[in-house]
Simulated assay, not measured.
Amino acid sequence: MTRRKLSAEEAALWRKVTERTEALEQRQTFDPAAFAPQPKPKRADPPKPDFGKLATTFPPKPEPRKNSFNLTPSLPDRLRNAPVQMDQKTFGKMKRGKMKPEGRIDLHGMTLDRAHNALTRFVLSAQGSGKRLVLVITGKGKNRDEGGPIPVRHGVLRHQVPQWLSAPPLASAVMQVSEAHISHGGGGAYYVYLRRQR
């Protein structure tokens, strides 16, 4: 590659530039060592454990976690674990199906509103006529959950009847509610033992 000669204008411009420049002193020149990366300082080694102390001192045991959720037991479990309000001998006979119900109501196929009204009338009239043990048939219920976003309870009446019996106005008439013996309908029916009317 051959160098080309500067034109008159370029030569004049170069002279102006060189007239204004000042020579650098030797110490002001670029020193690449000043910009070299500095070595990282070494970290201090962690203190070595004293195994004699470790053998005798342990951290305190953490407290066991207390679960904040409360799983509601199933309906048969709740009825089974409910305190017995009536005579134990009579309760045993009732649970084994040895007592014959004095009245019965079948709530199959009713809507919740109709069933609640019918149950209320039946229980209060049974207590008024002096009956002690009645049978409430709810059925076990059909699985109607079509997989939608809101789950549908299996056996709505079966789950609702014990709640109605434990709430006013029926709570004052009912002494004990228990799942019926298999001979009277099993899981699809309830024995309702009534208080004597005063």
Rank of each mutant, 00 (worst) to 15 (best):
P162S: 10
L79D: 04
P168R: 12
Q85F: 05
L124P: 06
S74G: 11
S74Y: 00
S172R: 14
S172W: 04
M86F: 00
P83F: 01
G128D: 14
N70G: 00
M94P: 04
E22K: 13
L75H: 02
P60V: 10
V134M: 02
G147C: 15
M1V: 11
T138H: 12
A118E: 12
P162W: 03
P32C: 07
T90S: 05
V192R: 00
A82R: 12
R114G: 00
P47K: 14
K89A: 14
N81T: 06
D50T: 09
M110P: 03
H116W: 03
L165A: 08
D87W: 07
V174Y: 01
T21F: 01
N70Y: 12
K100R: 14
A12Q: 10
P149L: 13
D87C: 03
I182S: 07
E102W: 00
K95F: 01
S125Y: 08
R78P: 01
P64L: 09
K93Q: 02
P168A: 14
P162R: 08
L6N: 04
F35M: 05
G130D: 02
K98Y: 00
A126M: 11
P151E: 05
A115W: 01
N70W: 04
F51Q: 10
R198V: 02
S7A: 09
Q28W: 14
P49I: 04
R15H: 10
M94L: 08
R104I: 04
V134H: 07
A12L: 10
I137P: 11
D87K: 08
R132S: 09
D31M: 00
A189P: 12
P46N: 13
E63C: 06
P76T: 01
E63L: 15
M86H: 01
G92P: 03
V136R: 07
G155S: 10
K93E: 02
H116D: 04
V136C: 11
F35S: 01
F58Q: 12
P60I: 08
V17I: 04
A171I: 05
F69G: 00
P41E: 11
A8Y: 09
Q88W: 01
P76G: 01
G186S: 10
K66T: 14
S125M: 05
A173N: 00
P83K: 11
I150S: 15
R104A: 09
A34I: 04
G130N: 05
R43W: 13
P41A: 11
D77G: 11
P47Y: 11
A180T: 03
V123T: 10
S166E: 12
V17S: 06
L75W: 05
M110A: 08
V136Y: 07
S166F: 06
P60T: 05
Q28D: 15
G147Y: 15
V161F: 06
L71F: 08
R96S: 10
A180D: 01
K140W: 09
A118R: 13
R20M: 05
Q197D: 04
P101F: 07
V174S: 01
D45Y: 08
L75N: 07
V156F: 04
K42D: 11
A44K: 14
G148E: 09
G52I: 08
G97F: 02
I182L: 09
M94Y: 00
T57R: 13
L119R: 06
G92K: 09
Y191R: 02
H184Y: 15
Y193M: 00
M86W: 01
Y190A: 02
G187L: 09
Q28E: 15
G109F: 07
G52E: 14
K5T: 04
